[in-house]
Amino acid sequence: MAAIDTAAFIVVNGLIFGALIALTAVGLSLIFGVLGVPNFAQGEFAAVAGFTVVGLLGAGVSLAPAIVVALGLSCVLGVVAERLTIAKLYGRDNFLLLSFFVTFGLSLVSHNVLRIAFGGFEQIPGPQLGSIALFDFELSVLRLVAALIAVVMLGALHLFTKYTYVGLAMRAVSDDRQGAEMLGIDYDRISMVTFGVGGLLTGVSGILYGMLFTVYPTLGVSLTAFAFTIVVVGGVGSFTGVIAASLGIGIVETFTATVVGSEYRFFAIFLVLFLVLTLKPGGIGGDVDVGH
C-alpha cells in the first residue's frame, strides 16, 4: 500500500472507531461531569447490551426487537445500579474514591457474569450492506452507517441538553448543584436520568461494536479504559473536547494497530494519556478544577 492509501485507511477507520467509542466516552463524561462518579463500569453497559442482543438472537428473536430490548435493559440497569449502590454513597466523605471502587465492584460482577453466561467472543450479524471502494481498500458500508448512527446519537444528545428541561437541568447540576436545587431541581431524579442516558449511549456503542467487530466478556473493561483516557484528554466538562479526543484516540489506536502491531494498542493509548496528563494535569479541552 502506498503511503497515502495507508494514511487514508488509518484516518477513515480511525474516525469510525473514534465515533463508536465517543458514545461510551460521552456517557462517562456525563456521569462523571454531572454526578462526580468516575464510573469504572461504564463500558459494561456496552458489553451487556451486545451480549443481550446475541442472547436474544440465539433465542430466535429478530434483530430489531433484540436491539430495542437490549437498549432498554442498558437504560434500566443504569438506573438500578445508581439507586442500589451509588445513591447510598451521597454525602459521604471520600465520595470520589468510594464511588470509583463501587463501580469497580460492579464491573467485576458484570464481566464475570458475562463470562460465565456466554464464555467467549460473539458477533452480532448486522445487515449486509456491501462495501465501497475507497483509495485502494474496501470499506464496509455497515461501518459508515454505524459511524453515522453514532453521530446522530451524539447530535441528539446535544439537542437534548440544549433544549429540554431535563437536559438543561443536567447541565445545571454539573455546573452548580446547589444552584440547581434552589430552582427546584431534584438531584435524585437527575442522577437517575444521567445514569439512564449514559447507559443508553454506551449500550448503542456496544451493539454497533458487536456488529463491526466482536463482543467479548471483557469488552467493557477495554472500553472503559478508552473512555477514561478520552475524558481525561478531552476535558470532563467539554462536549467538543471529548468528541475531538475520541476521534484522535480512534486514529491513534488504528494507527498503532495497523503500523506498529496490535499488541501495542493499549501501550500507545496509555502513553498518550500519561504524557498529556503529566504535561497538562487538567486535560486538554476542559477547564476543570484540578485540585479538589
Binding site: F32, P38, L96, F100, F228, T229, V232, F266, F267, F270, L271, L273, F274, L277, T278, P281, G282, G283, V290, G291, H292
Partner: peptide
Amino acid sequence: WPATRASGIYLGIITLAFNELFVI
C-alpha cells in the same frame, strides 16, 4: 513530583497509566 500536582481522578489516571506502562 509532577504527578502529585494533579489530584482527584487525574492523579488516579496518571498512576494507572504508569502501572500499565510498567507491566508492558
